[in-house]
Design a protein around this nucleic acid. Structure first.
Lengths: 225, 225
DNA sequence: GAGCTTGTTGTGCAAGTGTATAAATAGCCT
DNA sequence: AGGCTATTTATACACTTGCACAACAAGCTC
């Protein structure tokens, strides 16, 4: 069958149809596609073409929104950190709850979905692994870590105050460091081997360990009284 | 000065001098060079040429010892895990020491150099970040993790037995999970921001937190009695 | 020391990388 | 409806990557 019926002579180079999106939307889509690619294939597998494919655009467009790949990765990492710390802190804004309840809720929130998540962990590990060599990544992490620890320290202070205990700054700092470690450690265990734990088990362990660290008497004993 | 005195006519293609090394030596050198490259430049920067340069050989030689880059990376990761778990367990083989002392020594060993080390952490994070996508990495981690946790569980059982306490299997497991988290969390804090802590501070916090988790009475109170 | 084995080098190559840039077209403004 | 602009596509390019292979020489054996 001859192609004489084709209105375009030769095989017309049919160009890809596309839609114009707002700048903010495109940037967010590209960042999300970047995180997806990094989570799935690692930093080495996250090529501009892979990212663009996932975002539903062609590779050239990335350069229109980001000066280069480096900047895209940095913005993606910043977006990830923002999301993580924001979710973590969100559990703290409970009105009309005792400090102890708020602390427990904070621990619980950090040891369940969506914070316990294999994809997020993969991203965190991939990026943090470069923190030793990349000062900008190291600084971003440092700020996020200290912010998190300060939140913990503030709640701890409230909890102890409610118990009529007045720790000095050094003790408070040690409590925050320890509790931060407990949450981080359980978070990793949950992300890497979530199916090894029954639902809520990690949170229960976390609360118990944190309260033991603070020297709080177990709730059963309180209620028995 | 004319080069007529040069015994070689033209610029003779002077080939690189080399020495033949034993197979085991070369393999270990290449694995070490791989770990160095990954720690410094990440997985993406660890190219065959970079690795070979660091090992003092040319890139082609790698293919003589490893089927491909994939296998080299896997063996490097296995070597890293071996070293880490071996060092960690080494602290447990103390003769004539009470279970409680052995547990404290274990915690201390895991929260000081050489286990607290930015390079090792960078490597761990880089590799573990790929565990979600690479089943072989995931399995290697799982085995190392469970081995570590079982060690912890064994020591905890001894400590509690010495205290005349007989926890059931579930309680023992929870203790091991929590203590493992404490050590991991503090390890990360120390690796990522070692200079924020005074020497021995992390170990002190670790011991205190672990003993609180187990419900051991602080040593000061024991001695006062 | 001659000869042989094989560890080691050097070069080549196809595929893929980030970046640069020209061509096209979607969608707003008048 | 028609033109303008900037978003988007598509192609080109220099460079790097992992891998293949032929040439070479280090060091053992006799």
């Amino acid at each position: 069958m001859p192609d004489a019926a084709d209105p375009a002579p030769m095989n017309a180079p049919t160009r890809r149809r596309f839609r114009r999106e707002g700048e903010e939307r495109r940037r967010q889509d590209l960042i999300e596609a970047t995180l997806d690619s990094v989570a799935e294939h690692g930093l080495q597998g996250a090529t501009l073409r892979t990212i663009a494919l996932r975002a539903g655009v062609t590779a050239g467009l990335i350069r229109h929104y980001f000066p280069g790949k480096e900047e895209l990765l940095q913005e993606a990492y910043a977006a990830l950190m923002d999301r993580m710390t924001e979710q973590a802190k969100a559990a703290l804004v409970m009105e009309d709850a005792s400090p102890r309840q708020r602390l427990a809720a904070f621990v619980t929130a950090n040891l369940n979905v969506p914070i316990i998540d294999a994809r997020v962990f993969s991203l965190w590990a991939t990026f943090i692994g470069r923190a030793g060599a990349d000062p900008s990544l190291a600084r971003a992490h440092r700020e996020g870590y200290l912010g998190f620890r300060n939140e913990v320290e503030a709640v701890v202070a409230e909890v102890l105050a409610a118990e009529r205990r007045t720790p000095d700054a050094s003790q408070l700092r040690h409590h925050a460091i320890a509790i931060n470690a407990i949450i981080d450690g359980l978070w990793i265990e949950g992300c890497l081997a979530g199916e090894m734990f029954s639902p809520g088990e990690l949170a229960a362990i976390g609360i118990k360990t944190v309260e033991a660290e603070l020297g709080l008497v177990p709730l059963e004993q309180v209620q028995k009284k």
